[in-house]
Design a protein around this nucleic acid. Structure first.
Lengths: 101, 101
DNA sequence: CTGATGGTGAACCATATGGTTTACTGTTCC
DNA sequence: GGAACAGTAAACCATATGGTTCACCATCAG
């Protein structure tokens, strides 16, 4: 169900969160700090990313640590590669067809 | 602005359209046929894909031919690779750090 | 010419989404 | 214990989204 991941990454705020998290884990508060959004808003986004299987969070004391899942983007990467492969082989087939005629 | 592409691919109907189109171009009607949706609905989705730079369409006579752009998925692929690279090098760094201590 | 076909535009509708504020809980620190 | 802090839950709001139907236009086939 890769479209969940795409949908999650489709929001600019969430995309930024993932980019941030790719540099290393942080607290929810630190994710909110650079933005103009409220903490609750950011936390909602984090939840969406969690449900899409892109992010995991743990609560340590009163702070919630967010980290990118190791396997976060493999589904996206493989889907993309697959479609590109399909499309390019089709283009190749068309190319050789044109050569032959 | 890769989040436009992600957003476009985030809808299951549109994802299916792209997968269909990766096998080769078709008319809008042919895209709608296998679904339960109305033609106008499908055409709206095609427009979204067009604006995201994933698909191009031309009108031939009374039928609109839709095809996947050759460079449709490169932005998605490169973004994904980039983030994976960042994240994995960070994991590596952590690994060697743990080894050293 | 006429009828059927493929697509388009517009109006409309229900629901999902992204955001807010406010009040509350649980931790940490002095 | 009490103040400040990080997060959470809930209620609420505006707008975006995904869908419909209906009327209409343009093209192809007979």
């Amino acid at each position: 169900m890769v479209h969940h991941q795409f949908a999650a990454l489709g929001d600019p705020t969430r995309l930024a969160i993932v980019e941030r998290l790719a540099r290393g884990p942080t607290s929810a508060g630190d994710l909110a700090a650079p933005t103009t959004l409220s903490l609750p808003a950011v936390l909602k986004h984090v939840r969406v990313l969690e449900e899409a299987g892109l992010v995991t969070t743990v609560k340590r004391g009163r702070v919630r640590e967010c980290r990118l899942r190791d396997d976060a983007l493999v589904a996206v990467a493989t889907w993309t590669a697959q479609q590109q492969a399909l499309w390019s082989t089709r283009l190749d087939a068309l190319g050789t067809l044109l050569e032959d005629t």
